[in-house]
Amino acid sequence: MAFVEARDLTKHFVIRRGWFARPTVVRALTGVNLEIERRETLGVVGESGCGKSTLGRCLIRLIEPTSGQVLFDGEDVLALHGEELRSLRRRMQIVFQNPFSSLNPRMTVRDIVAEPLKAHTNMRGSELTARVIELLRQVGLNESHLYRYPREFSGGQAQRIAVARALALNPDFIVLDEPTSALDVSVQATVVNLLEELQAELGLTYLFISHDLSVVQHISNRIAVMYLGEIVEMGNAEEIFHSPMHPYTQALLSATPMVDPETRRERIILEGSVPNPANPPSGCHFHTRCPAAMAFCADEKPPLREINGRLVACHLHE
C-alpha cells in the first residue's frame, strides 16, 4: 500500500456574497486520486487556480475536503478527531511559498522553531534551545541566528528557518507549496539542494507543488499535471518532461522558457486564459483552449486511464 493516498478527493468552496444572493460553488478539486510512495517526491504542476495548493492542504487536512478519503500510512486521516488528529500532525508538515508570511514577524527564530516542539513534547528551556540549534545547523544556519527576527534575514535564509520548523518533529511527509518560487535563481538552487539532501538523509516523502516545470522535473520522481481541479496527466518525471502526452502538458512545457536551445520546443500558444473554476467547461475542462479538441470533447469527460505506465485523461489517447 502507498504511504500517502488520496481517493476521490474533492473540495468545493462555497462563497456567499450576501444573505439573499445564491452561493457560488468553486470546484477547487474534483475527484483526485493519487498515491505517493515512501521516500518519493511527487511533483504537482499547474497554473493558478488549478487546485494544486488545495490538494496539498487537503492531504494534511489543513483544509477539510468536501468528500473523498486520505490515507496516511494506512490511517484514515479524515476520520480522526481532536487529540488523535493533533498527534498525527507530528508526522506531516508544510512549507509555504513566502517565508515572510509563514513566519510570525513578532517571534524570534528560537520561538518559531521551538513552537512545534512545545506543542507536542515536554522539552523546555535549555533542552529545547539545544534541539533548536541542532535543527538550525541541519538547514545551514547556526546559534548566532537564534534570537533574531524573520525580517532580519534574506528570503533564502528565512525559508531555511521555515524548513527547520517543519523538521522539528521528525516528520515523514512534507508538503512543499511553491517553496522556491519567491526566491532568486541562485538562492533557489541552495534551497532545492537542501531539500534533496534532507530527503536523502532523513528518508522524507515530499509533495512538491510548483508552477515551474523545470524545478519540478528536477526534484520529482513522478509528476502530476493539474488543470481546473483535476489531474490530467501523471507519471514518471523524466518521461513526462520528454514526451508529454496530454495537450495541456505539451502546451505547458512548450510555454516554459528554456535557456538551452536543445530543450526548447516549438511554441504552442494557448488561446485565452484558464476558465473560472466556479463555472468550468463541460466535458473535458481543457477543450475550450485545446489545439487538438474534437467535437465530442465538449460532451464527454475523458477518464484518467493508464497508457504505457502513465495516466492520461484525454480522448486522443484511446
Partner: peptide, 25 residues
Amino acid sequence: REFVAAARGMGVRTPTIIARHILPN
C-alpha cells in the same frame, strides 16, 4: 495569514494560537 495556518498544521492548540499569533499581532 500563513503563519497561523502553519501553526494549525503543526498541531498547536487553539488557545496557544490565539495567545501567541493573534493577540501579539
